[in-house]
């Protein structure tokens, strides 16, 4: 399947997931770290402490967004180094895949 179709398929899956999530108006969408781990800890008489850098609201959103962007950039950089880009070879020498070898014959 061409790469563009994969991208469209993943975007449709994300939209479908968010659409389904928005249907359930009663759900808070708290993570299991809060609902299960935190819930059981409170039951057992333990409460979480205030984090070292206690980011709240949009500041926390910003931290997650920026760290996701940095992580994504780093992943892309190493991906390109290992596997190369569109039509470009990897920076590390590699032998052709079976598909490429068949094409070259």
């Amino acid at each position: 399947m061409p790469r563009s179709r994969w991208v469209i398929l993943i975007l449709v899956a994300i939209l479908l997931l968010l659409g389904l999530a928005s249907l359930d108006q009663g759900a808070t969408w708290d993570g299991v770290d809060t609902t299960v781990v935190g819930g059981f800890a409170i039951e057992a008489g333990r409460e979480s402490w205030t984090p070292l850098f206690n980011l709240q609201g949009d500041a926390l959103l910003f931290a997650f967004a920026i760290s996701g962007a940095i992580g994504g950039f780093a992943a892309g950089y190493y991906w390109r180094e290992l596997f190369g880009g569109n039509g470009a070879p990897s920076r590390l020498g590699r032998e052709p895949s079976s598909k490429e070898a068949r094409r070259d014959v």
């Binding site: 968010l18 759900a27 969408w29 708290d30 996701g68 992943a75 991906w79």
Partner: peptide, 24 residues
């Protein structure tokens, strides 16, 4: 480097699970 970046990103990526009403 690739695995470190991916583990960093996916383990901070809370995905909503509609059937459960929570995210993980």
């Amino acid at each position: 480097g690739l695995m470190g970046s991916l583990v960093f990103v996916v383990s901070a990526l809370a995905i909503p699970v509609p059937i459960a009403g929570t995210a993980a």
